[in-house]
């Protein structure tokens, strides 16, 4: 199988001048091709379906079982006592979160879900540590932002010629009929 597919490295060795010319020609050919990088920050990354970003919390669906706090490998989720609520509710420290998504896997009621963002800006460190009510409010805001992105979104796709190509998508992930991103 592939073990011998490459062949002996010495047998495939081209002559000195040819090797130089091939190297230069290969580099020069690439000079004419467009870049494969994603034009961030002019565009946002639409992410692949099922991307694991920050964890969102739905207070009404939570049953206070504390499984998420138990499974969280980074102790980003802790249980809080909320005034006027008999059960403990999870609070979330985004700064500690490693986006493994195990909490959403173990949540028995779909109270936790994953968003597609993980790169958000916070005013200060304390604002990253949220109690259950803050988390629920914040989650709604993240969802809204997800629905109305501040910049056009691009989704990466593998291309056999160019590696990765990007197509414009809207917030739901549907394709946008528009010409390609500006050429640079």
């Amino acid at each position: 199988m592939a073990g011998s597919a490459g062949g002996d490295r010495h047998r495939s060795r081209p002559g000195l001048v040819r090797a130089h010319l091939e190297a230069i020609a290969t580099a020069a050919r690439r000079l004419l091709e467009p870049p494969m990088t994603m034009p961030i920050p002019d565009y946002g990354d639409a992410r692949v379906p099922g991307y694991r970003g920050v964890v969102l919390f739905d207070y009404d669906k939570c049953i206070g079982c504390s499984l998420c706090a138990q499974i969280c490998p980074a102790r980003a989720i802790k249980m809080y006592r909320v005034p006027g609520d008999k059960r403990l509710r999870p609070g979330y420290n985004v700064g500690r979160c490693i986006f493994c998504g195990l909490c959403t896997d173990i949540c028995p009621t779909d109270a936790l879900s994953e968003s597609i963002v993980h790169d958000r800006v916070y005013d200060d460190v304390p604002s990253m540590d949220m109690d259950p009510v803050d988390w629920a409010v914040w989650s709604r805001r993240v969802l809204e932002e997800e629905r109305k992105p501040g910049r056009p979104l691009l989704r990466a796709r593998v291309d056999p010629e160019r590696g990765l190509v990007y197509e414009r998508v809207d917030a739901e992930g549907g394709p946008v009929a528009e010409e390609k991103g500006e050429e640079r």
Partner: peptide
């Protein structure tokens, strides 16, 4: 810019965007 092009990158861009 040449190195960026060969390496499938963009290279310097944001200082004077019009001039690349």
């Amino acid at each position: 810019k040449i190195a960026a092009r060969v390496q499938m990158r963009v290279g310097p861009l944001y200082v004077s965007r019009r001039l690349g």
